[in-house]
Design a binder for these strands. Sequence first.
DNA 1: GTGAAAGCGCTAACAT
DNA 2: ATGTTAGCGCTTTCAC
Lengths: 332, 332
Amino acid sequence: MRHVAALAGVGIKTVSRVINDEPNVSDATIARVMDAAQRLNYQPNLHAGNLRRTDKKTRTLGLLVGSVANPFAGALHRAVEDAARERGTAVFASSLDDDPLRERGMVEAFLRRRVDGLILTTVTKSQGYLIPEQERGTPLVFVDRQPVGIEGDVVVSDNAEGAATATRHLLEYGHRRIAYLGDRHDIHTAVERKRGFLEQMASAGIATGGIPIIEDLHDEQSARLALLSLFAAENPPTAIFSSQNLVTIGAIRGLRELGRQHTTALVGFDDFVLADMLDPAITVVAQNPARIGALAAERVFARLDGDQAPDQTYIVPTQLIVRGSGEIRPRD
Amino acid sequence: MRHVAALAGVGIKTVSRVINDEPNVSDATIARVMDAAQRLNYQPNLHAGNLRRTDKKTRTLGLLVGSVANPFAGALHRAVEDAARERGTAVFASSLDDDPLRERGMVEAFLRRRVDGLILTTVTKSQGYLIPEQERGTPLVFVDRQPVGIEGDVVVSDNAEGAATATRHLLEYGHRRIAYLGDRHDIHTAVERKRGFLEQMASAGIATGGIPIIEDLHDEQSARLALLSLFAAENPPTAIFSSQNLVTIGAIRGLRELGRQHTTALVGFDDFVLADMLDPAITVVAQNPARIGALAAERVFARLDGDQAPDQTYIVPTQLIVRGSGEIRPRD
DNA sequence: GTGAAAGCGCTAACAT
DNA sequence: ATGTTAGCGCTTTCAC
């Protein structure tokens, strides 16, 4: 900037004014400064400015998700990015792989870079460690998980209601013996989905004690094996509710191995690409990651704009998408 | 930092030493400083440090892709992130949606934030505008596209060879009339894939003039319609080579509509989730986005470490995955 | 409409 | 082993 000022033959403050579109600079001066900046390939240093600037905003956001490689996170990330770009804000993204140490590490890395806000899918047992930062005024929005040991805005899918809808759907098609295949029992979303499922089963007068439930399935392979074990046991289910993407796909593989994909009903939580092109096409309860991301970004920016409203939990509705696999009736 | 120094009863430089793990501080002092930092919830300001630091490294990378919501970009991003984390580097990601203005805007936004390097899938006609930045020493790595108007390290899939492999595969199964469905004809990857296809067809002695070729298919819908038009015309193809993910899926939809999915061979460029669970399962030439990302990150860091080797183009091999659709023989 | 001086939070280069 | 001073590139404040 000093060099630009020298070349344009003006004071450094005038260059600053031109760069930041501040008033009180004559058109002629603006032109001279722009020209000098161009010739020197000058790029303003945002960080240097922020050091002195009163609002202290870096126009940077931090986003923490399970993995940027998974479709749910991708859609969410994209929505956050779109909202951010409108505000001239860049987005740091990081994958946590369910590793609490990584969460701590990346939060610190982002805070050292002075992000204006944080949108996070937490994997730590408690997020109390964020309290000091929150008190300092950094907006925190929790997505897809309820925070523990701290308050904050929260945006989640309607997990319990979505699971209940899926279950109701299967019940309506005449199923009584419905198995639950779930992922890690200790994460918020899984707890809620199981709760929705069980409550709906109970409402239908089904003794919850006898329901086949297999949890902690973390990938396709374990889900596939779980499904096979279901049919190896006595009194196999006539329908399956799978609580997550990979579990659904593993279940499909298992059903196909047994040749039961056309006789066993299946509803999965979370939609996936090409679900409509499988045979049978898979009925799912779809989440809306783009909506979750948009809402989370909206909350962060509202807080940055001074919104003082009490923390709130936003529940994004899910949607049952009927495709075939969920409409298979029991044999008898 | 001043406050920490005051509370610990030491000079500010000593705090700096402790924070940065520099030597020549007694254990007792370290403990006192750490304690004070803890009590004040002190978070060092990386940007302030960088202002004075001689290496001028922000430990930040910028990544530009088509869209962070697409699986190819997600896998690539993840690989870049993994490499970056090992180096204490955070990653900015941004989606371009084929919009040159967005590329320019985001590059500028990243440069103002002083990223140490840039990994980019370019969408502008020429990337000459990056030359000044390159001369300033910022490593630039181009992925999935050849840059124009500038030199730099490049990491791409083996598009031509992959397309040739797919084509050869279809030829080996007896096809002579193979149609090409391609996406935007003006992007590097599409050009290369078409070239590989045509060269292989020519090698097989097939007059390239008569080959059914439809390009500029940008989504499933247009690909589906293109496929239908192929079979509405005289002398329909016995096999299809589709040059991209969405095009492949659109083609599958079209074939199914016509009931020809079991009688028309299909090989797609780029793998996709559940391709193995369709009927028929889809034979593809798979790319390796994770490898591309890892290689790109490696190049950036090598340059940052002072590697002065001439710019190089890294070609990541593709892999034919045989699943069924590509092994259907022509009727006669 | 313009510029000079001070200072943001830190590290470099020297002291001691 | 520790502290002091200057200055990174900018914005603020205030003077002209």
